[in-house]
Write a protein that binds this DNA or RNA. Structure first.
Lengths: 331, 331
DNA sequence: CTGAAAGCGCTTACAG
DNA sequence: CTGAAAGCGCTTACAG
């Protein structure tokens, strides 16, 4: 015997009424609703997710596509998403997207087709036109966060402005030989985060009549930052200031500087991006972007899309310069 | 019309046969199976998660209870879990457990009762007898990881041994005034991780005929470690060595030492626990415990419990001393 | 090896 | 406001 049926029997109403009373959809008299609630609570009854999903077509679960969940930034975004979703009674299903194309195919062709989620948040995941079409065919709403500009709507910080802010901070302090550790030789037609930061860096320098001292390639990890910085700072005539594309890259740069006997900020000014919790301890200047809040905003957006079919009007994410001891005028 | 029905119609067999062919359960001739597969692939057909779950009682999803997912340690464990689960076609549902008792009640009384998952991995979450009973009533298999000793089976590192290893390393170097930054005044009846590490620390000192120089309280975060260390190291007659209960606490200690003008390792030897990626850059000695692998092991265990009803025989997790530059003999 | 049919536990038009 | 009943899309004994 189904439990809903048991509740109905005990209260003396139909299963339809119990369903309405418990879900809040459809009209039920206040008295009936109260009795149903009381009996259900007493029995410890909760609707079965799969039965409810099958009948209603809604799962009350949101999927999150995430590339590197060990990184502080993504872990913090996910925490923000979870915080907001659980407040609305939604579950969160994690899909770890690796670089492996076969795994990615399986994700799109199988996992998402199983319809276990009502909507999707894609974190820094590149969705090409085919992906976007597939999601549209599945009628699966998506919201991106830090995704390159594609056909799917996305929340974004203005990464060009972020990079300009950081770079102009260094210029304003009097630096003239400024290097970037982030993306090298970007595809100028691209709109991914590292490319946009590269662009902002170049624009700020150009506006000031400066040319980049050098550009060291690195992805966003500590390790890559460290390697790039060892290379950059170990060369002849190193820059007096570095704009790192993330705080983790900046940490790597810090370790490299220390190993090379360069002092920060005396010999080298350094600024990152993110507002990493450890940046404060390193006394690292940064452009903060509040990832926990970003997660909440992304959750708001996907819930709005799933429940009302509309997106919040403002999809812009804030950022803020936080100057600390790692950036000073050059000697 | 249901899609399974559509596949059946196209192949010219019953839906029962399609179901068997696609799931691999029950006998189907190889020829039939191949035709069904081909048509299903061609149509892009994938079973509906909710329909399949409702009919079979299995969700192919595992829930993960996690207290602090922003922390590197937990994020890395989850990544290991996800890696292993996705290889077996299982989804992962994240349940963020906060300190809020109401949220915790909701988790047990509602979320888990919805039966959206086949099993549960509890990360460092204290499950009391009532929780364990509730899970048993729900017939929801659980495996703990880093959970205090309770009624639920759990994978564990031997935390007493971990702490002994770290402490004996310091003693072996010749230190006599050794402090612990971790738990202060533990409940000696408890078996949670910080308490066990506290115990190992004390045992190692006692065996060497030493007494703890001091004990500074801290939870496992960078911030708490920093605060505790400022207090401990700023006092008269500071210790010559510190055993920090985690690498993040050790980082906080490192920042505190720097702020107080103490040099590591010249003025202070320092060792942590975890094997944090950043420990290498800080040249921090540590007792590594391989969280990614822990996640995989936990996933293995819950899958085994869900699918065969048995646990792997060995639930012990390894650890290993990694001596680095932060620990040297005292002056 | 395969099919007919019941059933998993809900939700939701439809009718009153 | 409430109920009878169909239906959501599968799985699985049962029978052959």
């Amino acid at each position: 015997m189904s439990s809903l049926e048991e509740v109905a029997r005990r209260v003396g109403v139909s299963t339809a009424t119990v369903s309405r009373a418990l879900s809040g959809r459809g009209r039920v008299s206040e008295a009936t609703r109260a009795r149903v609630r009381a009996v259900a609570d007493d029995m410890g009854y909760v609707v079965s997710a799969s039965a409810s999903s099958l009948a209603s077509g809604r799962t009350r679960s949101i999927g999150v596509l995430v590339p590197l969940m060990e990184q502080w930034f993504f872990a913090t975004v996910i925490s923000g998403i979870a915080h907001r979703l659980s407040a609305d009674g939604y579950d969160i299903t994690l899909y770890n997207v690796t670089g492996d194309p076969a795994q990615r195919r399986r994700l799109f062709d199988e996992s998402l087709r199983r319809r276990r989620v009502d909507g999707l948040i894609a974190l820094s995941t590149e969705l090409d036109a085919a992906d976007a079409r597939e999601l549209r065919d599945l009628e699966l709403p998506v919201v991106g966060l830090g995704t390159p500009r594609t056909d799917v709507p996305a929340l974004r910080v203005d990464d060009v402005a972020v990079a300009r802010t950081a770079t102009e901070h260094l210029i304003g302090l009097g630096h003239r030989r400024i290097a970037h550790i982030g993306l090298d030789r970007p595809d100028l037609g691209a709109f991914d985060v590292p490319t946009l930061r590269w662009r902002g860096f170049h624009e700020a320098l150009a506006d000031a009549g400066l040319r980049p001292a050098s550009l060291a390639p690195a992805d966003c990890s500590l390790d890559a930052g460290h390697r790039a910085a060892m290379h950059l700072l170990g060369a002849d005539d190193p820059p007096t200031a570095v704009f790192a594309t993330s705080d983790e890259v900046a940490f790597g740069t810090l370790f490299a500087a220390r190993r090379l006997g360069l002092r920060v900020p005396e010999d080298l000014s350094l600024i990152g991006v993110d507002g990493h919790e450890m940046a404060e301890f390193f006394d690292l200047s940064t452009v903060a972007q509040f990832p926990h809040r970003q997660g909440e905003r992304a959750a708001d957006a996907i819930l709005s899309l799933v429940e009302t079919g509309t997106l919040p009007t403002d999809l812009t994410l804030p950022h803020r310069l936080i100057p600390r001891g790692s950036t000073v005028p050059p000697r």
